[in-house]
Amino acid sequence: MKTFTYERASIPAEATAAAARTPGAKFLAGGTNLLDLMKLEIEAPQHIIDIGKIGLNKIESTPAGGLHIGALVTNTDLAAHPIVRRDYGLLARALLAGASGQLRNKATTAGNLLQRTRCPYFYDTNQLCNKRVPGSGCAAIAGFSRQLGIIGTSTSCIATYPGDMAVAMRALDATVETVKANGAKRTLSLDQLYRLPGQTPHLETTLEKNELITSIVLPPPVGGVHIYHKVRDRSSYAFALVSVGAILKKDGTGRVAVGGIAPRPWRIESAEPLLPSGAKAFTAQLLKGARPTKENEFKLALVERTLTAVLNEAKH
């Protein structure tokens, strides 16, 4: 880990101001991903702004009937919140499927959105990785890619977004609220937040330098059956091979986002009218243009089969 200077901020504006003032600064929230990467020098901030105690840890109902979630609400607190459990079951289920109890106690909502890929070549600084070192090449495409992406990927990167929570957020049409150093605020959808890799896989989000996520807003509940089905080799404490987050109505309509297959939670709204026709038709549309490797082409079938299970479960 490279040496860095450290400061604690006490309010969001102070954090963004400090970031603007200090070259090479990074915000530190829970630290469960950033510190991991700093130990390997995949991340090497010169200055850490600890935002752990700047507030932003409340969950409040919005006037519109939705939910306003502070960026620093922990995964545990979010999953345990009565309104989340009652009205946004998909989100609670996705959170609880991720990581471990210890990590969920520390991991924050915004940090979770921004967690980086678990591609093993990204994690090993001796290997070629365009995400870590732009232009160096990608060892994963011809290497061990069983866990990696099948769609939304590029010739320079097949890494996946590894998380669970964002899959649910995407299906729930969550939006992200941010503040910049100059105080300007904006709101982004998750598809606006996450970039696809193209030839610049090191650019993962559209956040500007020193821009801070302050909250995540969920629209009013949409009802329906909420199911998050995460498929993995071991029963717990593992990243998804494939995960399906679904909100399904009695008439067969609904929304579906899929994790473990793409650089961002994968949802194609235009495919969703096909849901009543069944998993096969929908998945064909959802995964149109997929370019799996030989090692991960099983995910094509796995998405369809997992969705089949989810659709069946929703009927019962």
């Binding site: 630290g31 106690n105 520390k106």
Partner: peptide
């Protein structure tokens, strides 16, 4: 609350 002390400064 339980946490992993290795991923915490």
């Amino acid at each position: 609350q339980r946490i992993n002390s290795c991923l915490s400064l």
